[in-house]
Nucleic acid binder design. Sequence first.
DNA 1: TGTACATCAGTGAACGCGCGTTCACTGATGTAC
DNA 2: TGTACATCAGTGAACGCGCGTTCACTGATGTAC
Lengths: 195, 195
Amino acid sequence: MRYTKEHKQETRRRIVETAGRRLKRDGIDGSGVATLMKDAGLTNGTFYAYFASKDELVATVVADQLRTQHENIVARAAPGRAGLEQLIRWYFSAEQRDDVEDGCPNAALLDEIGRSTDRTRQAYTDGALVLVDGFATRLAPHDPPSARLKSLSLLGMMAGTLQLSRALTDRRLADQLLEQGIHNALALLAAEQHD
Amino acid sequence: MRYTKEHKQETRRRIVETAGRRLKRDGIDGSGVATLMKDAGLTNGTFYAYFASKDELVATVVADQLRTQHENIVARAAPGRAGLEQLIRWYFSAEQRDDVEDGCPNAALLDEIGRSTDRTRQAYTDGALVLVDGFATRLAPHDPPSARLKSLSLLGMMAGTLQLSRALTDRRLADQLLEQGIHNALALLAAEQHD
DNA sequence: TGTACATCAGTGAACGCGCGTTCACTGATGTAC
DNA sequence: TGTACATCAGTGAACGCGCGTTCACTGATGTAC
């Protein structure tokens, strides 16, 4: 069973998963290929049997992280606004903020993605829009497309607030910011859309 | 006049300014010392006559960028909510989004700052709080401290939304997000604080 | 005023190291007879 | 069933390059006499 398709696909999946954690922790430019492979229990040499370049891995990881976030978190939330509210409270918890490796890829990588190749930015755009659709379906079950922009802005607001909470050295203030983030996000949900 | 205090201070200022642009464009990990010095018209060797380490430069640049943003933009905005509204409209303009080098340091660097040394994070925290006070003074001229948290959350929301607009490959959607950002920010200003 | 010397901003080559990428090789596994 | 060979996931050393940092040196400027 060592050189079956299944074995190789499983190894690839392992690389993508461990690379997701490392990239979120150390950043894209801060994570070398050798380190990424060592995290997966392999040596640097075999990297190119799985990916044509580091950029291809990065794009794959970005897509995987957003897909996972959608499947494990957004899709599992309750339907309707109640589910979205539950999501928001989880997002702005101190636990999720402090667990960067298993946390939100948007908050961890958004400014670096903005500087990345078109390929990575495209993978990000596609993945983010799936998340956003999950938001919109809960915000306006009768007409999700009408809530798309508002959902997208909610994503940006959530990621930025979490980044800021992580960057501040004043822990108490950082915690208060999370509370304020919940407050603002819920207010955004409640607001009537008039434009 | 070549080896006066003034000359050296001016050169140092030039390094900090050009490094600000480069760091915002290419990121912290994406900008090497030799490149940063070349941008200032100098060679790599003289860097350590000005800074003890790259990290010291980064912390200095972060502080300088936020100070400049406060002095040139926030402090110059009209007093009261009108000034804040004017600021928000400028922030979410396509021009400011597309001009990364002269744009907002929060949007360009926030997630990398979260991964940086304590020194850099402290410089960021100090600088961000000055900006936030500028917001709060305009939000609640009679009692700025009461608007501090709301102002801080406004900063996070603005930076995250701008980052997201930069990361998206769909330009039309990115532009619509900026409009939605203005809408959300103004709604946040208008909201009564009940907590 | 003109010359000799001290100062020091800036140069450029070098340090060891890790980067992304390539490649000859290994050795366990699967297949053929 | 047992042996010979083909497959290929993975190794590990090496490529040229840029990283952050160090340091012996240069040469224009300022100072002293």
